[in-house]
Design a protein around this nucleic acid. Structure first.
Lengths: 203, 203
DNA sequence: CCCGACATACCGACCGGTTAGTCTGCTCGG
DNA sequence: CCGAGCAGACTAACCGGTCGGTATGTCGGG
């Protein structure tokens, strides 16, 4: 045995269960150094366990990544559904959704960094699955824009697809410049970006 | 000798010189599969040479990446300087610059994909250098927005920094959805995105 | 016109190090 | 005493980079 007594219960180190610790460590390291530059050894050391533990709970390194993706996708999908299905004028619904995706992205910046930067590292099957869910999300958002354009609340000068990609582009890009210790709080950034979108859509 | 006569001059295979072939192969593969997932062996095989040739012309795998970055940075910097320094009203200059960065990005989609996706793979020194040039580019662009805001041509509702990041976000994001065989030509996309920016900046 | 000396361009076997994933066995709560 | 939970040594593959060697070209002197 090492320096510590090996009285290890499943939740000795840090108090949290091993699978969660592994997922948290992987998320942090993937966000910091990227998927490929993070070895399985790094992850298990950061989590305070060994490879035996990791491969006891996860099938592969890919699975860890896929798990992170699943969390992000589920979260964003749920929130968007909530805002899109609300009982309010289109412009209120779209603005709320556009601002919310910014806030949740900033509040889970590690996860979303991974999501946008490492998508092509998954195997083809899982990649297809993620793309499909992502596409559904995109279309749900686009439907809001199209509804506003049909009813004349938004300008129809730009195809709805492009509008959505324009906004998501800025969201995607947040991880490249936003610093949590900076001057702007997530909600402020969200308000500004949502404003820009709504102003661009004015008829 | 192999199947072909070994009368090889420096430019036998494909007609183009070896360094260019290596750079082209590397660019394509980096864009397709990412830097880490592309081995030096893959590159030299795609270029029809061996590792000896690669390390004869380039110091390391990093150098290939850095070369691609240099091309993109120089190109974008030059074009922006041209548009920003022109003799025209601010809104014309900004619109031209905003549209041009989209066109050049789409016309060099492989290079820009690499640029935005693999920046963190360079060594710290070169990374600093690239970041510095990138920052200069950002500030040049921001100056245009600020000029318009000072003179009242643009709305001052949003900080200029955020406006620039908003637009660059969409540019950054182009590689994720644009397909050259799709319905929209680069110039059309550029016009739409520039329109969105200008509309968002209307007072 | 030819020859030796040197330079350039490239080949391909090879090396030390790293990686994802496996396997055996210990430990301990029940 | 038994199996879930985990440790840690192990392996086969692969990676970036090196190096000695070779084919071709160039050039100056005789």
């Amino acid at each position: 045995m090492t320096t510590r007594a090996a009285t290890a219960r499943a939740t000795d180190n840090g108090g949290r269960p091993v699978p969660r610790r592994l997922l948290a460590a992987a998320t942090r390291l993937f966000a910091e150094r990227g998927y490929d530059r993070t070895s399985v050894q790094d992850i298990v050391e950061a989590a305070g366990v060994t490879k035996g533990a990791l491969y006891h709970y996860f099938g592969s390194k890919d699975d860890l990544l896929h798990e992170v993706y699943g969390r992000v996708l589920r979260l964003q999908q749920e929130r968007l559904d909530g805002f899109a299905g609300a009982d309010a004028p289109v412009e209120r619904r779209l603005r709320a959704a556009a601002a919310d995706v910014v806030v949740t992205t900033l509040e889970n910046l590690d996860d979303t960094k991974i999501f946008f930067r490492s998508m092509h590292h998954l195997g083809p099957e899982k990649c297809k699955q993620v793309r499909a869910e992502r596409r559904r999300y995109h279309e749900r958002f686009r439907a809001l824009v199209e509804e506003g354009q049909r009813t004349g609340v938004f300008s129809s000068a730009t195809p709805a697809d492009l509008v959505v990609d324009y906004h998501f582009g800025s969201v995607h890009h947040l991880g490249s410049w936003y610093r949590p210790d900076g001057a702007l709080a997530p909600q402020q950034v969200a308000d500004h970006l949502a404003d820009l979108l709504m102003r661009a859509l004015r008829p």
